[in-house]
Amino acid sequence: MKLAVLGAGAVGASVAELASQYGHTVTALADSQSAVVDPDGIDVSTALERKQTEGTVGDAEPDEALSGTYDVLVEATPTTLGEAEPGFSHVTEALSQDKHVVLANKGPVAERYSEVRKAEEASDGTVLFEATVGGAMPVLSTIADFDADKITAVRGVLNGTANFILSRMAAEGLGYEHVLAEAQDLGVAETDPSFDVDGTDAALKCVILANVLSEGTEFTLEDAVVEGIRDLPSSALDLATEDGKTIRLIGEVSDDGVRVGPRLIEENTALTVTGTRNIVQIETTHAGVLNISGRGAGGPETASAVFADIGRLPHEE
């Protein structure tokens, strides 16, 4: 397939870099300032090198990536809230040209799900977004395979940064600020960690899950009850540990809606993953609980989910 990749951050760059290994050709790559476009395939390594040295990927305007030759738009620009722009417009523009869309950007499917679905209905293109929930983990495809109707609830650890911080605080008895600084040094937390530690990122993933599970009722971030881990003292973790428990940032999607917050859980259960690892538990009607665990973030990891989606797209033989 021919791919137009929007976004040249960790995920976009990995998709472009690895595309040939999956038998695809990148015909366009764009960041917010520039683009490189070639219907026969761009020179990915030159474009990414240029991104490193000059901050741009090529000489074309970003818009040219969307209007060029491609089968699949890979939307990997940064997640934005509210109007979810420019991601949302990228999605609708590609769909209006009957192209497929694979999202790594959570904004459009978390904040404007029904509009995305409507645009998809009017198009010959298909929208898939496995990469938006749990990085490399096959969460949405498992839900699709089981049928959303046969799933009663989903819960899990959906933010690696918050999980890293909490598991370090519990294991070392260190305070939040100390562990956060350590996580920033390691590159596990960003300079501005709000998105992760305030629970927003986990909540967006849960909202996307809720949208998929509840076909019909639309959820947005506003519908989620969200609490972060910023104000959690290490004494709370100590008390939990004393009792054979621990505290993790847990996202829940059930009939009661979407909820994200620090919760007390048993110290040694499937849910109690440590470090940046993620886990999702899917409660099914006929098959009990499924656990899917793995890397929930990272360039190549998230790109793997993008390629899995591309492989699922309908295509002519």
């Binding site: 104000d231 003292p233 004494s235 709370a236 100590d238 008390l239 939990a240 004393e242 009792d243």
Partner: peptide
């Protein structure tokens, strides 16, 4: 019931209730 207030009265403390 267990109380942990290691940082003194000004900081947040924690209590575990069973």
């Amino acid at each position: 019931f267990a109380l942990s207030a290691p940082e003194g009265e000004d900081a947040a403390s924690s209590a575990r209730l069973r």
